[in-house]
Amino acid sequence: MKRKAGSFIRVSEKGYTYEEIVVADDLKTKMERPEGIPPDAARIAQQAVERLQDEFVEWARRDIARLANLAPELASAPSDASLEEIRQQARIIAHDLRGQGATFGYPLVTEIATCLGTIMRLDKLDREMQQDMLQTLAEMMREVIERRMRGDGGEAGEKLRKKAHRMAVLAADPARGGPAAGIAG
């Protein structure tokens, strides 16, 4: 087997037999650096990532537009299966935005996308409410991107953050008020 340098048969504490396969230790040679990747390389990489920020804005715009387009589809999905498929698409896009936002200096995008991901996992939530929330959260992320609200986004960012979290709470428990009662602020 590739990478295998040898193996032992061992017995666990509970008396089960298992094979321990020793992995060939050859990556250090390929790396050509006995100490591995030096810490300094992470600093250089961080600078390279910062240079990608403008590209991130473009990716985020595209992803947010895709989310906004999913909202009407969510409302008109003809079956439970297609509804779930649309939710899954929204979850994947939210997951991507969540993963990238903070990396590129937009932690607000990460927070809003996290709330969206939570809401899109609620399969019992009223379809119209879910559609409204998807639309609203996409719009909020668009605002963060277009206004270049990096970091915490100051006072405006705090308002958006609170609103997104309130939506996630309301979605989990609509009896607490629903969109009309809480999301508008």
Partner: peptide, 23 residues
């Protein structure tokens, strides 16, 4: 995620410098 270069560096180094055996 969010992926930081430092976290990725550490994990790659872990694999290179201290390869795990298999069970």
């Amino acid at each position: 995620k969010p992926v930081s270069p430092e976290a990725l560096r550490r994990r790659i180094n872990e694999i290179i410098l201290h390869p795990r055996n298999f069970i």
